[in-house]
Amino acid sequence: MAERFDILFEGLSEEKALELLRTNPEDLSNPVEKYTAATRLAASRSEQSLEGLIEAIQLDPENLFNRITRRKVLEALGRRRDARALPALFTALAFDDETSVINAVDSIAQIGAALNSNQSQKLLCALRGSDNQKRSVIQTHTRLGLAGGEEEIAALEQEENPLVAGAARAYAARVHGRLDRLVPLIHQLTDSIAGRRRAAVIDLGDAGDVSMLPHLVTCPVSMPLRAKSAFQLVDPEKTGTVPTAHSDLIIQLLQDDPAMLSLQKDWICSSNLTEIEKNLQHRDEGKQYGGALSLMNMPQELQIETIDQLRSRYWSDYGANYLLTAVVGLKNVEERSDVVRTALAETLPQYAKSRVAAAWACLRLGLTDQVELLRDIQNTATWIPLKWSCEHALKGLS
């Protein structure tokens, strides 16, 4: 998903980014530019930029801006997916900065290259850290299919922290075929704590068992997170093609009707502007979806009035933007089709999920005047859920 935000750094040249990366932050008028440069170089492809990133792993962490830059560098090397960065990434496993270690571990997984026995042992030793670090190390074992950690990781399936236990269960299922270990993760999808639901969605995607798809689809967490795991299950090679057997569930997920989600009763607020407003601004997506459902259940005249008031206040909030666009489509609010057109035309990366909602809304509302834009998005989008949604909207509108 980070790739979608590369547009934010288009004004910074590679040459300037390398210069900033090598400059002492104390000599910069704005030291933040140094770690911004590291993020910019994640999108580069030159040898010089790769060498610059690898070199920057040795920045002196005593300086706060160097330390943050080093973290961004370790993250950037994962996006570069170049195995030549592996030796440097493994040196970072010995750092005393937990965030740097986690970023290095995640980047090792992203690169996806085969590890030698020494590297595998170093990665396994990285389990001796915080719960967040343990989770990241387990996930990397899962994503790289490393069977050697079976005994150590199996012992973590009973950890009190479900984020560690869930990752360990996903590992057992994916690498050792123990699908029965996933049952607790199904229950975790409806946990009252949002972070646990999100973790379960990620773990089930990693587990690779496509029979988990129906459970993922109805979990009340953000649509993009569910979509990422769902597409892992149905399209692991990232071809953009969904087998017919799973197409209906993917459509259900991307259309994202709050009424189809496993919402707790206390997440659904009363149907008035004040309460809906509170829910849409809540950090828990379950509450957000509960607010959207209350909006959907309003009488049409009051619904339109509420949409207008929420739009005037929160249209720039990409969470509210998405849910308002979705509600207009799901409830066929023809009087507010301009909401759909505006959302579909939005090109800022943080509104990509609103464009998904808008694509389906175009289909429901029969907005044939948007066909050209839908086709353009289908041809240029790199995010598969958006590309796939436009493709299906176009088929329905043709």
Rank of each mutant, 00 (worst) to 15 (best):
L21K: 09
R226M: 15
E19K: 07
L41T: 03
R226C: 14
T368K: 14
I377K: 02
R178K: 10
D82N: 08
I7Y: 15
G149C: 08
T382V: 15
T140L: 09
L273R: 11
I57K: 00
N103L: 06
S337C: 11
E55S: 09
L182F: 09
C125N: 05
R181A: 13
S100I: 07
N66P: 10
T36K: 08
E277V: 10
P31R: 04
A200S: 13
K395L: 06
V328I: 09
D256E: 10
I186G: 09
Q158I: 10
H141W: 12
D248P: 04
R79H: 14
P385W: 03
K395N: 09
L213F: 04
F65L: 00
E335F: 15
I7V: 15
K278Y: 14
N279R: 13
L21G: 05
E151M: 07
D60L: 05
C125H: 07
T140E: 06
L123V: 11
I102C: 11
E75P: 03
L12D: 04
A357R: 02
Q139M: 02
H392W: 08
I384A: 11
E10L: 15
D248M: 13
A393T: 02
T69H: 11
L213S: 06
L124G: 03
L182R: 01
A83K: 03
R198F: 13
M212N: 00
I57F: 02
L295A: 03
D206A: 00
C125F: 03
L324G: 05
D191R: 01
I193V: 11
R169L: 11
S398N: 12
D82L: 08
L363D: 06
V217W: 06
